[in-house]
Design a protein around this nucleic acid. Structure first.
Lengths: 157, 157
DNA sequence: ATTCCATTCATACTTTAGTATGATTTAAAG
DNA sequence: CTTTAAATCATACTAAAGTATGAATGGAAT
């Protein structure tokens, strides 16, 4: 357990307080004869006062336990700008990489033939991919697939 | 600033330690004559010991000060429903209200038949509207129209 | 009043989209 | 080594989308 020092000004002020207390006790010793008969009372008083002082010092100087609290702040993004691919959603639907690729091109407004040309595969293959996509996404039309995929951030705008 | 007590067994053991220390000092007083000439040294020793004891007590018993550090984590949320209809863009393309209505339903994934049913007009009328929309927007497919319309904020997401 | 335009509808047609089924290849997983 | 899944392709079909053309209506502007 370590005492973390906050700053030297505080240390100095505590030192001064300490010295002052000692002086006060000395003064009391001279002025009154409280302890004339019982040295133990005087020692006890010192013990008590400095125990309290120690407690006070410790509480003042002890390093506070830092508790980190993370607050999630919602930041709304308007479309396109920053697109974060939601892999979880894609995986959840069981969409393959190729299917997502086709989905994106579909959403970009390409016809099946254009997608086929772009990916250097046959029109039939595109149709097969798209049928699988519809099955997995549980939709009936490409427009629905596009709508859903964008909502799930599977494809960008 | 409050001292939080952990349990009474500890308090008792600390009390015993306290008493033992006092006894030890008394014993030292008798055994050696360390303080014979200087009472101040003895008082200082007591002060020091009990300051340390106080500090130790405080650290043991005090409930640690919890300083909460708040970290704001930004959670990005794609899209908001904050949609501002871009009338200028729609007017620029010469799209009529009805056409924009059809466009929106198209983007929502409805088939021509479903749009017709929803608007209580015939499938043929929907086809006519859509052909006009494609002409005005200079596109060939509904997916392209949807893409463009969304980019121009003519329809919402 | 008449022109203009949005809206509606129809028929006939072409093109594209989507379904069903089966098959091959290849790479990863068991 | 064999099973599994992704990716590829084909044929044949149905359904939906999209085009072309023409037309009727009603409201707003000229």
């Amino acid at each position: 357990m370590s005492l973390q020092i906050k700053n030297y000004k505080q240390i100095i002020s505590y030192g001064i307080s300490f010295a002052f207390l000692l002086a006060l006790l000395k003064w009391l010793e001279i002025r009154y004869i409280v302890f004339q008969n019982s040295f133990e009372i005087y020692a006890g008083a010192i013990a008590l006062i400095f125990t309290v002082l120690g407690i006070w010092l410790a509480l003042k100087l002890a390093k506070p336990t830092i508790q980190t609290k993370i607050i999630e702040k919602e930041v709304f993004i308007n479309r396109v700008d920053e697109f974060k691919f939601n892999r979880a959603a894609a995986d959840n639907l069981g969409l393959s990489d190729r299917e997502i690729e086709v989905l994106q091109l579909m959403a970009n407004g390409l016809s099946n033939q254009e997608i086929a040309d772009k990916l250097f595969i046959s029109l039939n293959t595109i149709k097969t991919h798209i049928s699988r996509i519809f099955e997995k996404m549980n939709v009936k039309r490409r427009t629905q697939a596009i709508e859903l995929a964008k909502n799930l951030s599977i494809i960008s705008y």
